[in-house]
Design a protein around this nucleic acid. Structure first.
Length: 790
DNA sequence: AGCACGCCGACT
DNA sequence: GTCGGCGTGCTC
């Protein structure tokens, strides 16, 4: 045992770095690499660290407060010279991680889509005057190869042996980025065996052309079959070599000219721009982007889906070149080499304008001056697996410099503030607190088919039957809708019919007065459960027997039947013989290229259709049963319905197709707002007021807790324990709802139970969640930004 | 997440 | 007697 080296005042022991690995575990501590200066900490840089006997890529997410209790390993190598992940994103992810008890590595692996598989050449040697022979014999009876005094390639040694040597500090290592290469073929001067005439030709061609990228290319140039060139290779007259690869091609920016205009947008840290058409919003946004790019700053534009991304790219990417920088598009649609290349352009600051999907949120531009969140109210920003992060939540934290949105953060050093612009067709109810403007609504052609009233037949007088069935108006395609569909066919135009989803657990509705039983606690419709013969609230777990008479008018109840896409397709084919009818929903996607090319036809689909580009000749959009968007047991249902109507009205980039809405609730405020020409911000403001009394966002913070176990009893007990713990920690009666069994009784072999927290502030939420920082006999998962439950 | 360890049920 | 289910714990 040797004495510890003397500590010099000038060389204080470096504090460990916290490194996040792409795993659902907390960040782990590693010492900086040997000889690395104590400061600064390379926040956001990728590193190679020893992990379970191998080297693994991680991201430095902070400095540890103190040296750990146990002996830490050293970081082996720092891969980057610039941050690979934006430090403001790291801060924001920390905030979410601490509050939601979500491992930082999980958030990072969800949202960093490039660089985890860093390819590097890796060479090793023994430190001076050391014989590593002993390490080769550590397992009795074996004698592994070990590095000597000269640099050798690390790949030839077992990783476990290397790690053992590394841990003893006896290994010198060096890394170099692997050059981008592709395989190619080069002619050799002499081979092992003589060549035939054709093989000779192929060899001469290769000799003259220089290295070629593929055997088929070579064969084509030589005018011989691929088997001939294979023989040339086999006879040793040519060899496969690695050629430097060209940089991968990236999506081309648009060349749309930018007309200079004054920048009149707000200067606040967070502001919004809503209403109008997407192109109008982009025109208003352009001067701000140009101004920032000309100052050499970066602008990041995030879109929730493919159609929005394409629009943003088409409208905005042309602004970069005229501002002396370049634009890159970054999304999951890029291949690995393209992602790598695009990310390097961003990290080096060469690309000032970044337009991308959620995967671009952590883009490491060295000086971001603005983040734009397109369609900020889109549900697509909620990640449905892994960390279940909600992009608007993270991006708001980035704008607040790592602090929580309302300044109620649970720590965080409060780093860089990045201005944030929230854009969209309709503002989210949560966003109305920010300053901004709403553009006037575009032209709207709307026709409402009222299923709750008798048809207008003045010549017949009042209808005798008080119990008019929807069938009398035509169901699921009303006579009005059928008439305009036939016109679309006659004129060779295009139509889209939106159908409610496929089968879902049903609701109960009164046949006479349209009353739907709701939950007394949650103000959502109760769901009908066939197997339990009960009405059930998917939000709080309230359960009641099925009433046979309507509470409101005493008439018999009947079960609502949701028309699915298949039924609508069938009806549309019957109605329009000879007209192509396509289907596009979660289950099946017909080829829509004929429609996109402008040919006449009808597409029947679900909400997902909106993430495609609108057919160019679109003349009609039919919402076959609008009420389905209202009957979902989710307090955001009406807000979503309003947004759907607005999105449909501006789906086509220039035209205003006729929008036919078939509904039992023609007086729903969301629909009335459109009919009366209110702007897109009017209805969300109504919503905010309506939610006040119910204790819903934005007035309260809603948090979903899922307790799940393979054994139903255990899950139920654990869920009760969680509730008891929360109450024990001082939760007020209104703050904890549940537990309730999940609407899907068994999901992938586990029985989930759910609880809902309704807190006044993030600080209060953190207080309550802190009480759950212990073990329960089931998996407990916290979702601090739940969307679309039920 | 992956992987090892460890503890109880049905079998060559 | 063992194989193998999966609950628990660990990775710096």
């Amino acid at each position: 045992m040797s004495a510890p080296p003397p500590l010099s005042r000038h060389h204080a022991p470096a504090l460990p770095w916290q490194v996040a690995l792409p795993l659902p575990i907390p960040a782990h501590d590693f010492l900086p690499p040997h000889g690395w200066p104590a400061a600064p900490v390379p926040l956001g840089h990728r590193v190679l660290v020893p992990w379970r006997g191998e080297l693994s890529v991680g991201v430095v997410v902070g400095a540890s407060e103190q040296a750990g209790s146990h002996r830490l390993r050293e970081t082996v190598h720092v891969l980057d010279t610039h941050p690979w992940v934006h430090p403001a994103f790291v801060e924001a992810a920390w905030g979410l991680s601490r509050l939601a008890r979500t491992p930082l590595g999980l958030i990072l692996s969800d949202l960093l889509g490039v660089g985890w598989d860093a390819k590097h050449s890796h060479q090793v040697r023994a430190v001076a005057d050391t014989d590593l022979g002993l390490f080769g014999k550590q397992v009795p009876g074996t004698d592994w190869k070990v590095p000597g005094a000269a640099w050798t390639d690390a790949g030839q040694y077992p990783s476990g042996v290397l790690d053992a040597i590394r841990e003893q500090g006896l290994l010198d290592e060096r890394f170099a980025p692997a050059p981008r290469t592709v395989t190619g073929y080069r002619a050799l001067e002499a081979g092992k065996a003589a060549l035939t005439r054709r093989q000779q030709d192929a060899w001469t061609t290769l000799q003259a052309a220089g290295p070629l990228g593929s055997q088929s290319d070579w064969a084509a140039r030589a005018g011989v079959s691929p088997s001939v060139v294979a023989q040339v290779l086999a006879r040793g007259w040519a060899s496969m070599i690695q050629l430097p690869a060209a940089l991968p091609a990236l999506p081309e920016p648009s060349v749309r000219p930018h007309r200079p205009a004054p920048d009149t947008l707000p200067e606040e840290p967070v502001w919004r721009l809503h209403g109008g058409r997407s192109a109008e919003r982009h025109t208003r946004l352009a001067p701000r982007i140009v101004r920032l790019l000309e100052l050499g700053r970066g602008v990041l534009v995030i879109a929730p889906d493919g159609a929005t991304l394409r629009r943003a790219w088409d409208d905005l990417s042309g602004l970069a070149h005229s501002s002396g920088t370049r634009a890159v598009c970054f999304s999951g649609a890029l291949g690995p080499a393209q992602r790598q290349h695009a990310w390097e352009l961003i990290a080096s600051g060469e690309a000032g304008l970044i337009v991308g999907s959620a995967l671009a949120l952590c883009a490491p531009h060295p000086d971001l001056g603005l983040i734009v969140l397109e369609e900020e109210a889109s549900d697509a920003y909620k990640l449905l697996s892994g960390s279940r992060a909600f992009l608007p939540e993270l991006v708001t934290r980035m704008a607040a410099g790592g602090q929580a949105a309302g300044g109620l953060g649970t720590g965080g050093q409060g780093g860089q503030h990045i201005p944030l612009a929230l854009l969209g067709c309709v503002p989210a109810a949560e966003s109305l607190i920010y300053p901004g403007e709403v553009l006037p609504p575009p032209t709207l052609r709307l026709h409402v088919v009222n299923y709750s009233a008798p048809p207008e037949q003045p010549e017949l007088g009042p209808l005798s039957s008080p119990h008019l069935k929807p069938g009398d108006l035509g169901y699921p395609i009303s006579h009005d809708l059928a008439r305009v569909l036939r016109q679309v066919q006659e004129r060779g135009r295009q139509a889209v019919l939106l159908a409610p989803r496929r089968g879902y657990s049903a609701l109960l509705r009164c046949g006479s007065c349209q009353h739907t039983p709701g939950c007394p606690n949650c103000d959502v419709a109760l769901r009908f459960h066939q197997e339990r013969r009960a009405l059930h609230c998917h939000q709080c777990g309230y359960e009641t027997v099925i009433p046979d008479r309507c509470d409101a008018c005493g008439d018999p109840m009947w079960q609502a039947r949701g028309p699915g896409t298949e039924w609508i397709v069938q009806e549309a084919r019957k109605l329009l013989p000879g007209m192509p009818v396509y289907r596009h929903d979660g289950d099946h996607q017909d080829d829509l290229s004929a429609m996109q090319a402008g040919q006449s036809g009808v597409v029947v689909g679900t909400h997902g259709l909106l993430s495609l580009d609108a057919p160019p000749n679109l003349a009609l959009i039919g919402l076959t049963l609008a009420d389905t968007w209202l009957n979902i047991s989710d307090f955001r249902a009406s807000e979503r319905y309003h947004r759907l109507l607005r999105q449909l009205s501006v789906w086509h980039p220039s035209r205003a197709p006729l929008l036919v809405v078939q509904t039992f609730q023609p007086e729903h405020p969301a629909l009335v707002c459109l009919k009366t020409g209110k702007d897109a911000g009017f209805y969300p403001a109504l919503e905010v007021r309506a939610r006040e009394d119910l204790g819903y966002p934005p007035h309260r913070l809603l948090t979903y807790i899922e307790v799940a176990a393979r054994d139903r009893e255990r899950a139920a007990q654990a869920a009760q324990q969680v509730a008891d713990t929360l109450h024990g920690a001082g939760a007020a009666p209104g703050e904890v709802l549940g537990p309730a069994p999940s609407p899907l009784a068994r999901v992938r072999g586990v029985y989930p139970y759910q609880l809902l927290l309704r807190t006044r502030s993030e600080a209060r939420l953190n207080e309550l969640l802190a009480s759950l920082d212990r073990r329960f006999p089931a998996r407990v998962r916290v979702d601090v930004s739940p969307r679309g439950m039920g």
